[in-house]
Design a binder for these strands. Structure first.
Length: 648
RNA sequence: GCUGCAGUAGCUCAGUGGUAGAGCACUCCCUUGGUAAGGGAGAGGUCGGAAGUUCAAUCCUUCUCUGCAGCACCA
């Protein structure tokens, strides 16, 4: 038998017979290591303790101390253990797939009865039994025919389908956890007892389609989370509670920002507080765009289907459009209109109105465009995914040669805005040509390069998303990460030569002939509604002073102070600070509590002493201390703080 | 849109086949209190909507609307 040489992390090498397994290697080092080993890393690949090694390699034996392999194995083995538990309790349930995901795993089952929360408890108990049984994990490579025969005998139709989907040149690997069998790539732990029995939890059940195919019947997916120990599980639970506290739907109610009701699903009733955030943000964006050379337009909401037919939306986007039938007074047939789902076709109409010269380009046309899209009911989510929203939309009409410079300019514009709004952690993705596309290869080459070069010129790295571009052109996506690590795609820039073509947009070139402009669709915030939702969650409701809908509450401690309270409020309002008086017959404790819960950034308490000295006792949200400041000073200070970042 | 779960006072929730209850919020009264809930009283709901079963429905059945979680969707 031939020999191979294995090199350990400390640099030492040893020779073994070819086909040696990591289990044997570990045993050759120390019995204790063989016992606590969970897997190996062989030439960078995650390797099962039972898989043979046939050539010289670098090898490291992993234990529970190695976080990455440990968590992957724990979660992956739990997926199998859960499926085994389910089939032990309900033998008729069919198994499908169960991958590791996020902080845990899921497994999809085909079962007539829905799983109930009580079922989850029962499954969890059974899983703990399996873990305590410390059943060995075994693996073998099987032939296709044997595997299919096996699954036919065991009546597991989904597994047969999965076997048939595995490429011919790939090994079919079968795993056993005790007597329970599953088709699986591996690797796995050495035995079920290596899973920490107190570090996991089944979280919820939800429907999911087999292999994501919505034309097929829905399966039941059970989700679980798992960690190395009880402490980490608790930490995860605490984090989830924190995230729930930031939920913009909850904070929106508590801060009286907006509400939604069933007569207008997916649309927002903005209350005064919420609308103040909205208009403050919009005013800021309007100033920024003017400085950056945009012109602002406004276009119709309800537009005849003829335009949507020309733009292509009628054929490609109709199911997402609100269609409106209108009885024309003097016409027998009904006119059919649609609420605009996008602003671009209307902007081309503005562009087309009057001859444009090459001297007009690039023409940056912005609109805070109210759009309506009939989003599927299941997609709606608070103010983040709605049916009526307003984009900070703009279309840059330009020549091919201007694409790169305009893109660079836009990235710098967007970076400034994200920084002003407190987001410093964001990335760019470049989506390239998809399989179904129009336009020549040369033009795709050119435009993809222009976008990439623009990113570099602006000083930003980007990640490529192969084949994710629109059918007419590539795009950049700007994704920001919030305070608790969630990612949001907000900004976008898409190159579109198609719509100008369809809607016959032209300009007169230097040569006196007509030419076709290119359109860059671009947005920074995406939609005001969604972005405000992100802002609320990012700040847990404690918005920066300039964006806070209620900035200052001036609260009396005794009623003798009421007159001076009004004076303080008036002085603040006179310099543009949003201030209100609280002269209610309540104790200062009560008022402080209420306004703190209402996320008011500054509370100014006024008692007899402050009246006497013409001062205020200031308290900042989140701080327990107070400070006494003269009226003039606090007015000057808050006036400055209330300025939007671009005006400071 | 699909699967599952849910809908009772402004909010958070309890509850029963015989036309409903708590805490907070609200209104009024007492209290003028120094930085996260002072005390008392009162008002407030055709129990998401429609139909059905029943002597009787908030409760059981069906349909429907809306929300929540996930899937699918996201030019």
């Amino acid at each position: 038998m031939s020999q191979i040489s294995l090199t350990f992390p400390d640099g030492n090498s040893r020779d073994y017979d070819a086909g040696v397994t990591p289990a044997e290697v570990a045993a050759s080092i120390a019995t204790s290591l063989a016992k606590k080993a969970i897997s190996a890393t062989v030439n960078g690949a995650h390797w099962d303790m039972q898989w043979p090694i046939n050539e010289d390699a670098r090898i490291a034996i992993n234990t529970m101390q190695d976080d990455e392999p440990a968590l992957e194995l724990i979660r992956h083995d739990l997926a199998h253990i859960m499926a085994r538990a389910v089939q032990e309790i309900w033998p008729d349930v069919k198994v499908t797939i169960g991958p590791v995901r996020d902080n845990g795993w899921f497994y999809d089952f085909d079962r007539q009865e829905p799983f109930t929360p009580e079922d989850l408890g029962q499954i969890e108990a059974k899983m703990k039994e399996i873990i305590n049984a410390r059943d060995a994990v075994k693996t073998e490579i099987w032939s296709r025919a044997d595997a299919i025969k096996y699954y036919e005998d065991n009546n597991e139709p989904y597994k047969i389908e999965l076997v048939n989907r595995i490429p011919e040149d790939e090994d079919l690997r079968m795993y056993w956890h005790g007597d329970w069998q599953d088709l699986c790539r591996g690797p796995h732990l050495q035995h079920t007892g290596q899973v920490p029995a107190d570090g996991f939890k089944l979280t919820h059940v939800a429907g999911a389609y087999f292999l994501g195919d919505s034309s097929r019947p829905m399966l039941q997916r059970i989700y679980g989370v798992a960690f190395k120990n009880r402490k980490d599980l608790k930490a995860w639970e605490t984090m989830m509670e924190e995230a729930a506290k930031r939920d913009h739907r909850k904070l929106g109610r508590e801060m009286d920002l907006f509400h939604m009701q069933e007569e207008a699903p997916g649309q927002i009733f903005w209350h005064p507080n919420g609308w103040k955030i909205y208009t403050t943000l919009q005013d800021y964006m309007r100033r920024m765009q003017e400085v950056d050379g945009y012109v602002e337009v406004n276009t119709p909401q309800v537009v005849d289907r003829k335009l949507w037919e020309k733009s292509g939306h009628w054929d490609n986007y109709q199911e997402n459009m609100f269609i409106v039938e209108v009885d024309e007074e003097h016409a027998r047939e009904k006119a059919i209109n649609a609420l605009k789902p996008m602003n671009c076709p209307c902007h081309v109409q503005v562009f087309n109105s009057g001859l444009k010269s090459y001297r007009d380009l690039p023409l940056r046309m912005a609109e805070f465009g109210s759009c309506a899209r009939y989003e599927p009911s299941g997609a709606l989510h608070g103010i983040m995914r709605v049916r009526g929203f307003t984009q900070d939309d703009a279309h840059i009409f330009c020549t091919d040669d201007q694409i790169e410079a305009e893109t660079k300019k836009f990235i710098e514009f967007l970076a400034k805005i994200y920084a002003d709004l407190g987001f410093h952690n964001w990335t760019i993705k470049l989506s390239t040509r998809p399989e179904k596309r129009i336009g020549s290869e040369e033009s795709w080459d050119r435009v993809e390069k222009a976008l990439g070069d623009a990113c570099n010129a602006a000083g930003y790295e980007y990640e490529i998303q192969e084949g994710e571009g629109a059918f007419y052109g590539p795009k950049l996506e700007f994704t920001l990460t919030d305070a608790i690590g969630r990612q949001w795609q907000c900004g976008t820039l898409q190159v579109d030569p198609n719509l100008p073509e369809r809607l016959s947009a032209t300009y007169i070139g230097a040569d006196g002939d007509k030419h076709r402009p290119v359109m860059l669709h671009r947005a920074v915030l995406g939609s005001f509604e969604r972005f405000i939702g992100i802002l609320i969650e990012e700040h847990a409701g404690k918005l920066p002073f300039w964006l806070a809908p209620r900035q200052v509450v001036v609260a009396s401690i005794v009623s003798e102070a009421d007159g001076y309270v009004d004076e303080v409020v008036a002085a603040l309002r006179a310099v543009g600070v949003r201030a209100e008086a609280d002269k209610r017959n309540e104790k200062i404790n009560y008022k402080v509590r209420e306004h703190s819960l209402g996320k008011v950034p500054v509370i100014l308490a006024i008692g007899a002493r402050e009246v006497e000295e013409r001062t205020v006792s200031a308290r900042r949200l989140g701080e327990n201390r107070t400070s006494t400041i003269s009226l003039d000073d606090i007015v000057a200070q808050l006036k400055d703080e209330a300025q939007a970042p671009d005006l400071k």
